[in-house]
């Protein structure tokens, strides 16, 4: 069954600097865009301790983004560094998954997004540590400890909110419900990644789904929350076809470097 809203991507050949560059953008953009979302919470979280932990996650993510995007720029070899890639690309050139660009919503939706993304990213990084590309293996090895903390912290909140009060449980159900349609995309393998998987550079994401589902079931059970009913999957992020949300996010994030292209900050 084809649950994908969009037809399979046919634009991979147009990726001008090769699959490796594209893959690094996917990895870097996921971290960058999620960090950007988390910084929107700054100063507004439900408790001081939560402000601190969201900032922790954000700092880890921007560190990952910087490493991946700088490496992408080096692979591309056209004089673009991480900053150039982060602040001077249009939405259609971003390669992050749709999940990370979703709005924060309430704290339950933010934690739903965090748990689902970080759990998938953890599986990915655990395997990427074995990548035949040493730089990727190195970044993943550094990141895996961070991501394990993110996934655990978010899982704790899923349980707390699922188990807490009627209101928090309802909000958790609604928050997760917002996210289910974006899960398939996290495990999608397209032509860009297929070639890299063969070379041992990339990880076969489709093989990570089983462990993800098992962890998800276990956390939902601990939280007393129902198992997901997946709707038709929405995808397109890896090919630059994003939600309406990304343009607004980038308009804010890129405002200064775009307005003053000659400035160094």
């Amino acid at each position: 069954m084809n649950r994908d809203f969009f037809p399979a991507d046919t634009r991979t050949d147009s990726a001008p600097h090769g699959a490796m560059f594209d893959y690094l953008l996917r990895l870097g953009d996921d971290s960058l865009i999620l960090c950007q979302r988390l910084t929107e919470w700054c100063g507004h979280a439900p408790a001081l301790e939560i402000d601190l932990s969201l900032a922790n996650i954000g700092l880890d993510l921007i560190g990952q983004a910087t490493l991946f995007l700088n490496f992408a720029g080096a692979i591309e070899d056209r004089g673009r560094d991480g900053d150039r890639l982060a602040f001077h690309r249009d939405a259609s050139d971003f390669r992050n998954c749709l999940l990370v660009e979703q709005p924060n919503g309430d704290f339950a939706q933010t934690m739903a997004r965090q748990f689902l993304f970080s759990t998938a990213q953890l599986g990915l990084f655990e395997q990427l540590m074995l990548s035949t590309e040493p730089r990727i293996a190195e970044i993943a090895a550094k990141g895996v400890k961070e991501v394990r903390y993110h996934a655990d912290l978010a899982a704790d909140w899923i349980v707390r909110l699922g188990d807490g009060t009627d209101e928090s449980r309802n909000r958790m159900v609604v928050g997760l419900d917002w996210c289910w349609r974006f899960i398939d995309e996290l495990f999608l393998v397209d032509d860009v990644e297929a070639g890299l998987i063969e070379q041992g550079i990339a990880v076969d994401r489709s093989a990570l789904r089983g462990a993800f589902d098992a962890r998800l079931s276990s956390v939902l059970a601990d939280a007393g929350l129902p198992a997901p009913v997946y709707p038709r999957g929405v995808r397109g992020g890896r090919a630059g076809r994003h939600s309406e949300h990304l343009g607004h996010l980038l308009a804010t994030m890129q405002h200064l470097p775009r307005s003053y292209p000659d400035a160094v900050w």
Partner: peptide
């Protein structure tokens, strides 16, 4: 200005600074 920090480094440093303030 955190969401509009003009470089990756500036964003990371400002985020760390604000986190210190929460601490």
């Amino acid at each position: 200005w955190l969401t509009r920090a003009p470089s990756l480094r500036r964003k990371a440093v400002l985020l760390a600074k604000i986190q210190d303030e929460a601490g």
